[in-house]
Every structure is written in C-alpha cells, then in structure tokens.
C-alpha cells in the first residue's frame, strides 16, 4: 500500500482530534506513524504504553551580530517580516525568542556581519507501542512560536507508511504548517453552534490550501443538526459520525482507545480510514488528468 499523510484538525478545541487520531492510528493497517503536531500541549502519547523512547532536542538557528563588522545599515531589520530585529543606525537589537529561523537576515547583510547560533525551542520524543510508531513534539515553556517545531516533527514523516498527524486547534500558522503537504484533512467537529462556527473557519483554511477534506461529527446526537445541514449545503463529505456514547468517555478516562475497548468502534475507524484513502486517491487522480 502507498504511503499517506492525513491531518486530523478542527477549528474548535476539544472536539475530539486526538480521539480520532489515536483510534485511527490503531485501526489502520500497519505500517502506521502517529505524529503529534499539537506541540504546545501534546497528548496523543498518553494513550500508548511505552518502554523506552528516543528524545531529540530541537533547535532553530537565530542570528548573532558581529559588532566589529556591523555598520548599522539596518538591512536585516527591514528584511525581517517577523519584526525580530530593531536597528536605528546602531548595532541591531535581536529578539531571538521571536525568530522563526528563516536565515534571511544573513543573506541580506551586505557586511556579512550576521552568523547563526542554535537556540533550543523544544524536544521530540519517538517511541513504538504495539508496532505503532509515535512521534511527539513538545515546545519548551515560554517559546512563543511553534511552527519550527511542527516542521521538525514533520521531518519524521515516513513516506512509506500511513502517517496520521494530530494538528493543534484553531486555524493559525501552527495548523497551516501541520496541514501543508497533506494528502487529506479530516476536520473533527461537534454538533453545536460553537462547533459549526469554528468548523467554517477550518473549512476556509483547508480550501485555501487545496487539500481534499471531510468532516467527522463527534458526540453526534448531543446537539442539533446544523453541522450536517451545513455540510450538505456546501457539498462537504460527512465521513463519520461518532455517537455520543458514555462508553467512549469511560475508556478515554482510563487512557484506553475506543477501538480497543469497544469492538464495534474498530469497524467504524477501519471504514473511516478507507474513506480517507479514497478521498486522497481520487484527488491525486484528478490532479493527474
């Protein structure tokens, strides 16, 4: 089977991204790699037992100025779109904690006064559990920019495997960084006004990125039918409805995946995986024509 990259995202937080991502990872046929890209609060690993893990420190290159070479021209400050550098005819002041590590300031410096030093932003954990490969990114406390760590986690994508990426909530840079290059996106929502409001934002984001996507309604039956109506009107495939089921919550509270605790849920997620693969393949075929 061909490799695949699926992103599990949502507009609203707490809709069940990690529930869907972990259950899907367990139900999918191996080889499977689960990548937790919610690096500000990773939690997918909590559902798996591990004996040992490999930890890598993640750094980004940040600029350092050689004061003897710098003539204060300010090119670096003008170039930096992250507003990290202040220069007013003096040696520039650098706020490295906000740097994205793009390296642009080095390139534009006419005096070659800027070099790079490595700054730690977080860690990556890699472990196996029951044949499943799990990668988790964890941003250090106080680091304001997470996309570089999300990109680091994504370097662990196994092109030959089914990769399931658990995205952060919302629709901002960390989410877009997670989604880029994906074959398919699954948007998890709940049947409430809040769920629908944020789903619409997420749909606009995925459309902008031109990635095929479908919607999963979690806790179906607990709210109203406005999410279903919206998907119908917009021609968005509704690829799974997870019922509002106390047994799922009970398994979750024990740190157990629903597909392991409740047999019929395995079938639901096997079917979901099938639909995801179809969406990705249909879109790939469409692009070739």
């Amino acid at each position: 089977m061909k490799g695949l990259k699926v992103v599990i995202a949502s507009g609203k937080g707490g809709t069940g991204k990690t529930t869907v991502a972990t259950n899907l990872a367990i139900a999918a046929s191996p080889p499977v790699r689960l990548l937790d890209c919610d690096v500000e609060e990773p939690n997918a690993h909590l559902f798996f037992n591990r004996t040992a893990s490999e930890t890598e420190i993640v750094t980004i290159p940040v600029p350092e100025v050689d004061e003897k070479l710098c003539d204060g021209c300010g090119e670096c400050a003008r170039f930096c779109r992250y507003n990290v550098i202040a220069c007013y005819g003096s040696v520039p002041m650098i706020f490295a904690e906000m740097c994205h590590g793009c390296g642009g300031c080095l390139l534009v410096c006419p005096r070659k006064a800027i070099s790079e030093i490595q700054k730690r932003i977080g860690i990556m954990d890699h472990f196996s559990s029951n044949g499943l490969s799990i990668v988790t990114g964890r941003l250090d406390v106080g680091i304001p920019t997470s996309p570089p760590l999300v990109r680091a986690v994504k370097t662990k994508i196994d092109e030959a495997a089914t990769n399931i990426l658990d995205a952060p909530p919302g629709t901002s840079c960390p989410v877009v960084t997670t989604m880029k290059g994906a074959d398919c996106v699954v948007l998890v929502t709940e049947p409430t006004p809040f769920g629908l409001h944020d789903l619409k934002l997420a749909v606009d984001t995925v459309l902008e990125l031109s990635i095929p996507f479908g919607v999963v309604i979690n806790r179906a039956g607990s709210g109203d039918d406005r999410v279903g109506k919206y998907c119908g009107e917009r021609n968005i495939p509704l690829i799974m409805e997870l019922p509002d089921d106390r047994r799922v919550a009970e398994a979750y509270s024990r740190g157990e995946a629903a597909v392991n605790a409740i047999p019929e849920y395995r079938e639901l997620f096997v079917l979901l995986m099938k639909k995801i693969r179809q969406m990705a393949e249909n879109s790939a075929r469409g692009k070739k024509v």
Binding site: A77, Y82, N83, V84, I85, A86, C87, Y88, G89, M93, F95, M98, P144, T145
Partner: peptide, 13 residues
Amino acid sequence: QGAGIQSAQAVVK
C-alpha cells in the same frame, strides 16, 4: 508579532 519593537525603532528614527 513584534509591533512594539518596530514602533520603538520608528520613534527613535
């Protein structure tokens, strides 16, 4: 991000 940094630079300039 960095609005304060750039505004400060503008004021100094």
